[in-house]
Nucleic acid binder design. Sequence first.
DNA 1: CCGTATCCTAATGGATACTG
DNA 2: CAGTATCCATTAGGATACGG
Lengths: 124, 124
Amino acid sequence: MEIVTLSRGVYEANCPTRHVLDVIADKWTTLIIGLLADGPRRFAELHRQIGGISQKMLTQTLRSLERDGLVQRTVYAQVPPRVEYALTPMGQTICEPLTALISWAEENIKAITDAQQRYAEASS
Amino acid sequence: MEIVTLSRGVYEANCPTRHVLDVIADKWTTLIIGLLADGPRRFAELHRQIGGISQKMLTQTLRSLERDGLVQRTVYAQVPPRVEYALTPMGQTICEPLTALISWAEENIKAITDAQQRYAEASS
DNA sequence: CCGTATCCTAATGGATACTG
DNA sequence: CAGTATCCATTAGGATACGG
């Protein structure tokens, strides 16, 4: 198996790439992007479809994504208000590496659970 | 561009895959795995090479990785003590999706910074 | 050298109530 | 409907000191 070494800069304390990684390495971000990869969604749809997210965190995460240029927020001037969230072109490019990672998680969930089991037993 | 939809289960509140994602979606985990992909390291090496990590967080993150079966911890019985950390076979399999994500981050750092700039100017 | 233990602060994030 | 505002509990995580 070939191993790709990361660029050195990542390991320096103030590396900007680390800031970008922090953006992605978020509990909710991954899930939101995963949903939007399927097509635009309204606020309430996202809220309903993502189990356990609070309104506050949904708003906050969407704002970050918008700020970082991964998500486009569109407000339709009507009553009641209608707001749609969609991935930007840049946002779409992250889907592939992200789904690869999630696939890995799904494929290895059992192996990891087993490892945790063994670890717990070993330290008892 | 083809978009892969995530499995539905991920969006349920107590989905075990989300726990696995949380494992990876950590500030330090990514960097540690990136270093170990290159070969085994000692504690002090990791501490030196990862800028800004505290001893506490390094220990904590390494324990998690060991617990999850991604990292193998080997203690050599000698004085002064020598402890080596290496990726397990499972740990190696995550390198590819992880480096893909980090590559994405490095390729898009400028676009994201620019987007943040525009966002800040628009809201002033 | 490789940790653990303790203390302490800042940030996270849920619950709830209220608004255009 | 799509938020904002406020309060509050929990946690994350740095600094420091100490131990095998």
